[in-house]
Every structure is written in structure tokens, then in C-alpha cells.
Deep mutational scan, measured.
Amino acid sequence: DETGKFLVLSLYDYQEKSPREVTMKKGDILTLLNSTNKDWWKVEVNGRQGFVPAAYVKFL
């Protein structure tokens, strides 16, 4: 199980638009929880879990 094993870097600021999403700032290091959807990845940032656009992050 690779859940929570990968870190990704936020390339852009992102403001959550729904309760299922999370806000991140450019340069944030996020824990990747799920990347099965090619468009939206589930991450943990600042103690919160939610989705961010996959195009806004990259693997470290």
C-alpha cells in the first residue's frame, strides 16, 4: 500500500471551491493520498484532506 508514501509539490496557489477540495499555496509540500483520478488528486495539506487539480502539483 503506497498511500501517504509520496510527496508532491504545489506549483500554483489553489483556492478550494467546494468542501471536498483543499486550499494550497505555491511551494507547499503535500502528502499524496490518492492519484487514481487523472484530473483530481487527493492530498493532505496542513492537517486537512481533500482534492486538488492534478495539473497543479508534481512529484518530488
Rank of each mutant, 00 (worst) to 15 (best):
D1V: 14
D1P: 14
D1M: 14
D1Q: 14
D1E: 14
E2D: 14
E2Q: 14
E2I: 14
E2M: 14
T3L: 13
T3D: 13
G4H: 13
K5C: 15
K5I: 12
K5A: 12
K5E: 10
K5S: 10
K5R: 13
F6S: 12
L7Y: 14
L7Q: 11
L7W: 11
L7G: 03
L7C: 12
V8F: 07
V8D: 00
V8W: 07
V8H: 03
V8Q: 02
V8R: 01
L9Q: 11
L9K: 09
L9P: 00
L9F: 09
S10Y: 06
S10R: 04
S10K: 04
L11G: 04
L11V: 09
L11S: 04
L11Q: 05
L11Y: 05
L11F: 05
Y12R: 13
Y12M: 13
Y12Q: 14
D13P: 05
D13C: 06
D13N: 08
D13R: 02
D13L: 03
D13G: 05
D13W: 03
Y14L: 02
Y14C: 05
Y14N: 02
Y14A: 02
Q15I: 15
Q15A: 12
Q15C: 12
Q15T: 14
Q15G: 07
Q15S: 10
Q15H: 13
E16K: 14
E16I: 05
E16N: 07
E16C: 12
K17Y: 05
S18W: 06
S18K: 07
P19K: 10
P19W: 11
P19R: 08
P19E: 12
P19V: 09
R20S: 14
R20A: 13
R20N: 15
R20I: 12
R20M: 14
R20G: 15
E21T: 08
E21D: 06
E21Y: 06
E21W: 04
E21S: 06
V22T: 05
V22N: 03
V22F: 12
V22L: 14
V22K: 01
V22S: 01
V22C: 08
V22Q: 02
V22G: 01
T23D: 03
T23S: 15
T23G: 09
T23L: 03
T23F: 04
M24R: 00
M24F: 07
M24H: 01
K25A: 09
K25W: 08
K25V: 09
K26P: 04
K26C: 08
K26F: 05
K26S: 07
K26G: 05
K26I: 06
K26W: 04
G27C: 08
G27M: 02
G27N: 06
G27L: 02
G27K: 02
G27I: 01
D28K: 04
D28Y: 04
D28C: 08
D28L: 05
D28N: 06
I29M: 07
I29G: 00
I29Q: 05
I29H: 05
L30H: 02
L30M: 15
L30W: 02
T31R: 12
T31P: 08
T31C: 12
T31K: 12
T31V: 15
T31Y: 12
L32I: 07
L32G: 02
L32V: 12
L32Y: 03
L33D: 00
N34R: 05
N34E: 14
N34C: 13
N34A: 08
N34Q: 09
S35V: 09
S35M: 14
S35A: 14
S35W: 15
S35Q: 10
S35T: 11
S35R: 12
T36R: 10
T36W: 10
T36F: 09
T36C: 15
T36D: 15
T36M: 11
N37C: 10
N37K: 07
N37F: 08
N37T: 06
N37Q: 08
K38F: 06
K38W: 07
K38H: 10
D39F: 15
D39C: 14
D39K: 13
D39Q: 11
D39S: 10
W40I: 02
W40G: 00
W40Y: 07
W40L: 03
W40V: 01
W41A: 04
W41C: 05
W41R: 00
W41S: 02
W41D: 00
W41M: 04
W41E: 00
K42P: 01
K42Y: 15
K42M: 15
K42W: 15
K42H: 11
V43W: 01
V43T: 00
V43A: 01
E44P: 00
E44N: 05
E44C: 11
E44G: 05
E44W: 06
E44R: 07
E44V: 07
E44Y: 05
V45N: 10
V45G: 06
V45P: 00
N46V: 04
N46P: 03
N46H: 11
N46E: 10
N46D: 12
N46R: 10
G47I: 02
G47M: 04
G47S: 05
G47C: 06
G47Q: 06
G47P: 00
R48F: 07
R48A: 07
R48N: 07
R48D: 04
R48G: 04
Q49W: 07
Q49C: 11
Q49N: 07
Q49I: 15
Q49P: 06
G50R: 01
G50D: 00
G50V: 03
G50Y: 03
F51M: 08
F51W: 13
F51H: 05
F51C: 11
V52L: 04
V52E: 01
V52Q: 00
V52W: 02
P53R: 05
P53D: 02
P53T: 03
P53I: 04
A54I: 04
A54L: 02
A54G: 03
A54V: 05
A54F: 02
A54M: 04
A55E: 11
A55M: 12
A55G: 11
Y56V: 06
Y56F: 13
Y56K: 07
Y56L: 13
Y56T: 08
Y56P: 00
V57G: 00
V57A: 02
V57C: 13
V57P: 00
V57F: 04
K58P: 02
K58R: 13
K58S: 14
K58Y: 10
K58Q: 15
K58L: 12
F59M: 15
F59A: 11
F59Y: 11
F59K: 11
F59I: 15
F59S: 09
F59T: 10
L60M: 11
L60P: 06
L60F: 12
L60N: 05
L60K: 05
L60G: 04
L60W: 11
